[in-house]
Design a protein around this nucleic acid. Structure first.
Lengths: 237, 237
DNA sequence: TGTCTGAAAATTGTCAACAATCCCGAATTA
DNA sequence: TAATTCGGGATTGTTGACAATTTTCAGACA
């Protein structure tokens, strides 16, 4: 008669899914870790049924890989695979941006501009590499993706690819936060240009700007990897 | 000691997944149908456990929609949603095609050309609208997608979007096979041009050609829908 | 020493019963 | 009559036990 008034109309599987996902994305459960059903079930206080369902959905989001009769492990993307992920994002978010230019309402665009203003202020004091910068970046992309009004596209980007990217950001931010966001002011200007294109209803330009914007991120990741492997080579000898 | 030598190393959930998926894609279970777990479990001779897992995976493939505590239904895409699906395909397969031009081995390309030759012959006798034409088209796209060597992209297109498209093809082929593939010879020429671009390692061109090729399909679907709604309007009065 | 075999242990897959929730229709009331 | 409440039935969510499979590890053998 007390604790249950914070009613969870969600199912148990949903709740445990959220928790495990968080643990994976934040790196609390490291990439490559074997997922033991009974262990996790005990840890989160549910039986194996809901847990298996959660695992199943995590698999569909690309955070976990499963082999029949063998078990599940947290994915550990290779460098190559992260690059491949970025390639997909480039195209898909490019498309989303073009559609956003076509389909966003004036109110939507207004909201987007407000968002950017808020980021500008955040940026003014917390200049540079902070967590807020990343979160702001995500908000921006998130907003445009939803502006496309293409339900399947929204689902693909926000549900199926988003978490993987997030996991990777966490993983690398542990190593080196600054190297991946070397030009935050540049990204900000990109965002501004993109909004302008959307406001002008210039879908073609908006698409291209978004593609280039993400291409930049990809390049940053690529050079980061290059340095990393060079470093390793140096360490070896 | 007899029947089990055709061993199924697959899990029960896998088998039932395959069957249900087939039934959905072929329209044997109509779009919008409510999925009753106990009914289906009885139908396929398994308990609700594996069946729920199968449903879960069908959900992740976009063939089924599920609401907590309420149940699952087979999706019934609106016209708009099918168009949205085509938009995504345009971009993603365009990307796949560019990557294929960059990453396919000579042997891969050879195989692709052989495939096209086979289709040419099939086409010679079974000219036009037949099922083989559609299957051939799918094989062609399938082959190029795999040629991209981008695992995530392959998964997205072949596992998550493919079945939806297939379901839709079946649905409309029941109504009108011919209207959607009005220019089979045109499609064949497109395929030829695409292979040439890939063989030339011209990724940019290959991407554009593939995009235009799928754009054609989308346009055909769009005009088909327009005719359909015009027809309905006519029927109403 | 290294490899192979096979049984025990651990893990995943499947099942049937139980609990919680939703849906639908009858009875009640305004 | 229309709206509302309240059960009963049906459906989904959850659980713990059991079956099937994989993994581990000790011992035999070359």
């Amino acid at each position: 008669m007390n604790s249950k008034h914070v009613v969870n109309n969600q199912t148990l599987a949903d709740q445990v899914l959220t928790k495990i996902q968080e643990d994976i994305v934040t790196g609390d459960i490291a990439p490559g870790t074997k997922i033991s059903e009974s262990a996790l079930a005990a840890k989160y206080g549910v039986s194996r049924g809901p847990l298996r369902e959660a695992i199943s959905r995590l698999e569909s989001r690309g955070l976990i890989e499963r082999a029949p009769n063998v078990g599940a492990r947290v994915v550990s993307l290779s460098h190559q695979e992260l690059i491949e992920l970025y390639q997909i994002r480039e195209n898909l978010e490019g498309l989303a941006c073009r559609l956003a230019a076509e389909n966003m309402t004036e109110a939507d665009i207004q909201e987007l501009e407000t968002l950017l203003q808020k980021h500008k202020q955040d940026k003014d004091f917390k200049d540079g590499t902070s967590y807020y910068k990343q979160q702001g970046d995500l908000d921006f992309h998130y907003c445009i993706i939803h502006g496309s009004k293409n339900k399947k596209l929204i689902h693909l980007l926000c549900e199926e690819l988003y978490h993987l990217i997030l996991m990777y950001r966490h993983q690398f931010s542990a190593i080196s936060t600054s190297k991946l966001t070397r030009h935050p002011e540049k990204a900000f200007i990109h965002h501004q240009r993109i909004i302008e294109a959307i406001a002008d209803r210039d879908g073609e330009l908006a698409e291209m700007l978004m593609k280039k914007h993400i291409q930049n991120s990809r390049r940053a990741v690529e050079t980061f990897f290059d340095q990393l492997t060079a470093q390793e080579k140096h360490d070896d000898k």
